[in-house]
């Protein structure tokens, strides 16, 4: 009886050891061939990866309309997110966004490839958490920690320049969509020393804002996005004579730096801070 008990203890111990080894071993080695298929993971990976570690980024990363690191991205082979192509790159880690085509992600997982999914960042806190997670995944924790510390220091310096009486700004996108406080763009406004008009107009979470309401609210700053090529009625709204009159001399453009949770966000904040300080 005691013998068999001891033997079963040993078996359990061995099984546990085997399980621990099995789980820990693949993660112990840093991934060597990383493929990113999402605009934001592209940029975080480019910022943090060791030389040669990142094999490919998405084609959006090379599009200056959306990517703050378009020049850097051109050094990498670009992918369009098709599972087949990515599989042929023989990655040992694939980085995807939660809005990346689910079918491609599932296919890659079925093929035995490790896929890590990042949701979009909606706050500076998300940006920090995602940089930290990216550092862990790429085994570049020290670099990530340094980047976050630098981010926080620069952000604090920019925030320290906020005035007591904050001017009002509104984020006005194609089709009259306004972004609320709980978005990256909302947090950029806040860090730059503006209050977001969306909250005052009852759209703290963002939503459609009629041009009439914007005109009556007379914001101190109207932030509109950069325009895509071609024509659309949604973007034509941003050329409406009434909006032009209200925003005359009080207009800023958002752009690629506003999109993803990387330290490039601070470039957007700094731009607005300079605009605000020049206006006084």
């Amino acid at each position: 009886m005691p013998v068999s008990a001891r033997r079963s203890d040993l078996c359990a111990l061995l099984a546990a050891l085997g399980f621990w080894l099995g789980a820990a071993l693949p993660a112990a080695a840093a991934p060597e061939r990383v493929v990113s298929m999402n605009l934001c993971t592209d940029q975080m990976a480019m910022l943090l990866a060791a030389p040669g570690q990142l094999v490919s980024v998405s084609h959006l990363a090379a599009d200056p309309m959306s990517s703050a690191m378009a020049d850097a991205a051109r050094a990498y082979p670009l992918n369009r997110g098709q599972a087949e192509r990515i599989f042929l790159m023989k990655p040992d880690l694939v980085l995807a966004g939660s809005y990346t085509a689910q079918a491609s992600v599932d296919m890659l997982r079925r093929l035995g490839i490790r896929v890590e999914v990042f949701p979009p960042e909606t706050s500076f806190a998300d940006a920090r958490a995602h940089l930290r997670r990216m550092g862990r995944l790429l085994e570049r924790e020290a670099e990530a920690a340094a980047m976050i510390a630098d981010f926080d220091a620069r952000l604090a310096a920019l925030r320290a320049r906020s005035p007591d009486l904050r001017p009002e700004a509104v984020l006005y996108g194609a089709g009259g969509y306004t972004s609320g406080n709980a978005t990256l763009a909302g947090e950029i406004l806040d860090a730059a020393g503006y209050t977001n008009l969306a909250a005052a107009l009852g759209r703290a979470g963002g939503g459609a804002l009629a041009l009439e309401e914007l005109v009556l609210a007379r914001p101190d700053l109207v932030v509109t996005p950069r325009r895509y090529g071609g024509q659309s009625r949604s973007e034509a709204l941003l050329d409406h004579p009434a909006l032009r009159r209200v925003a005359q001399g009080h207009r800023a453009r958002s752009g690629a730096r506003w999109v993803c949770g990387t330290p490039h966000l601070l470039g957007a904040v700094a731009g607005l801070v300079r605009l605000r300080e020049a206006g006084r």
């Binding site: 895509y228 090529g229 071609g230 024509q231 659309s232 009434a242």
Partner: peptide, 25 residues
């Protein structure tokens, strides 16, 4: 086929019509 990401969403405007946000132009 338009390079503009919003253009395709406007098929419904051209099929059903709207007067929203038009200007004196």
């Amino acid at each position: 086929l338009s390079p503009n990401p919003y253009a395709a969403a406007e098929i419904v405007f051209w099929l059903l019509g709207s007067l929203a946000d038009r200007s004196m132009v």
